[in-house]
Design a protein around this nucleic acid. Structure first.
Lengths: 345, 345
DNA sequence: CTGAAAGCGCTTACAG
DNA sequence: CTGAAAGCGCTTACAG
């Protein structure tokens, strides 16, 4: 662990060694037009030979770009979502020559920290920001970001869609499709475990379930819809209640994988084998679901792809105004993931 | 989503408005000594009034610091570890005025990407790097980082401990303590599900278990130690095998929470109620374990605190050489987490 | 306690 | 196709 204090190689050194001006070196570095193939290759050789690495700060200062894109989370911890977003975002930032900076707005005790947002925006110089849910619908955040005059893209926003570019997937359509696939296996008594009422994805998934059932002419009794909060314990309680019904369902569709895992535990408690006597499906394709027993049938939510698209939308806005694409939103595809927690009736 | 093209307020504007030199403004900004209280407050007022935000690139260029700290992961996705590391690291970077940049070295298909490492180090200007396991023991990574002459700190390294500063926790001691706590509840037939043989934490945890049993005078039969790979399915198989023994254990200690959850599933399969007829404990304090049923007794691994300490060690090295602390390692404390998956015999 | 000058290493805007 | 000059907005090193 040392710091090298010997002088760094700069663009001037390269220019001198290659017998050209620094402007020409700059052209080669940035793949600009206007350098003959001969000069270009000579400069590249010298760069390679001297191990030259451009100074990012100098580049930023003169170009007025930080080459930093921030992604802000409510909470970084304990969440598969976070890693997926970063994986996707990183693919896009690398392609574009940007670096990915992470931030979160919650205090350690889980309180929303309005000052943190202001501080983040005050002390930093992002070229753009990716806002994840539920932050992307928080008016305090949006106002702070807009006051700082920062470009931003939202992931799966709930409302006010014209306000800024966004990426999304069709939760309702996916839930409908998942429900229909249970129907096609012969299931008729299909129950649903809903997520929190104020959560966009939860609402949409519930609507998709209801729509599918309505399309098949089924009036869903209230008892078939249990309410949950996206956490495992609520799925357990919901499953427990549903399996205690006089005529229990043959299939339970939980609004996310965590709750579906809770349903599996409830089935174990009731001595109901899955999938032989009960089919269970989830939503999200969380790693927990894949390692559950039996492995959970679910819907793949393309989180990484959504984040990648979000960064792409952002970067495109930084380009030359004449060619700047004004793509306002991008929709990503879901995919049903069939594992071992379902079987035909 | 707009970009403001009006001229930014700079240090020159503040200096003019406050009637001082830019050097004095700089002193106030950086809380340097040598500015009277009167001047200081006058400058601060002007800064506030004009909404001045220092340009980070300019600061970096002249101070030869990027104020960027990188944290490199093998894989960003699907892992509770990643979020915890970032949460802790972010606490420390914020305190020190740094930003946290994330990177991963695996390609999307899970292949180690040696070129990615070189590219990361080539295109970026970190002041320092946090290396997470198992990267922190990968000679290719270490060589690349050292060749780039970058300061770095390792989290829970396996070997070659003198090579660079590091943070760690006592996995062996924790596993010993967890085993002894089962013993004190009256358990005598305590089985262990081991993690992968090439994984430092897995080895240490197994040794802690064996040490505790040896201290109590028990020669552990081979059949009591099942081998796993830290994934849930291996825990399920291990539990299945252990519960099929002629004299099954009354307690199973799994080397991590994922495998412990698999053991719970095996217990359900065997119709063995947990904790009434079988106690199950894990290790890590992963969120999965908390939402398992029954909620899992485990050992809290202070991942966030380790990451925070790692960044602290790094930042201290950047300070004035005269006061630079040469703290080489820091040990963090574990903590037993008692939930509902254990009961006395 | 305060400031004038130089310089960090690039890109931009312009000229030829 | 190529380059000389100016400038980005700070900090450093030095002087008083």
């Amino acid at each position: 662990m040392t710091r090298n204090d010997q002088k760094r190689v700069t663009i001037v050194d390269i220019a001198r060694e290659a017998g050209v001006s620094i402007k020409t070196v700059s052209r080669v570095l940035n793949r600009e037009e206007g350098a003959s193939a001969e000069v270009r290759s000579r400069v590249e050789t010298v760069i390679e030979k001297m191990g030259y690495r451009p100074n990012a700060s100098a580049r930023s200062l003169s170009s007025r770009r930080s080459y930093l894109i921030g992604v802000i989370f409510q909470r970084l911890g304990g969440y598969h979502y976070v890693g997926e977003v970063q994986t996707g975002a990183l693919r896009a930032t690398r392609r574009g020559g940007y670096q990915l900076v992470v931030e979160q707005v919650e205090t350690p005790d889980g309180v929303f920290d309005a000052e943190a947002v202001t501080a983040i925006l005050r002390n930093t110089t992002f070229d753009g920001l990716v806002l994840t849910p539920p932050l992307c619908d928080d008016p305090r955040i949006l106002e702070a970001v807009e006051a700082a005059d920062l470009a931003y893209v939202r992931m799966a926003p709930n409302a006010d869609l014209d306000r800024a570019p966004y990426v999304w997937m069709d939760d309702e359509g996916a839930a409908r499709e998942q429900t229909l696939s249970l129907w096609e296996m012969g299931h008729r008594r299909i129950a649903f475990v809903a997520g929190p009422e104020d959560h966009r994805a939860a609402i949409q998934r519930r609507q998709g379930y209801l729509r599918a059932m309505a399309e098949r002419g089924v009036a869903v009794p209230d008892a078939w819809i249990a309410s949950g909060d996206f956490f495992g314990m609520s799925g357990f309680k919901a499953g427990d209640a549903l399996l205690s019904l006089p005529e229990p369902p043959t299939a339970i569709f939980a609004g996310n994988d965590e709750m579906a895992i809770g349903v599996l535990a409830a089935a174990a408690k009731h001595g109901v084998p899955v999938p032989d006597r009960l089919s269970v499906v989830g939503f999200d394709n969380a790693p927990n679901g894949a390692s559950a027993w039996p492995p959970l049938t679910t819907v793949h939510q393309p989180i990484a792809e959504m984040a990648e698209a979000a960064v792409d939308l952002l970067i495109k806005r930084f380009g030359d105004a004449r060619f700047r694409e004004q793509e306002h939103s991008r929709k990503l595809d879901y995919r049903l993931v069939v594992r071992d927690s379902v079987s035909p009736v």
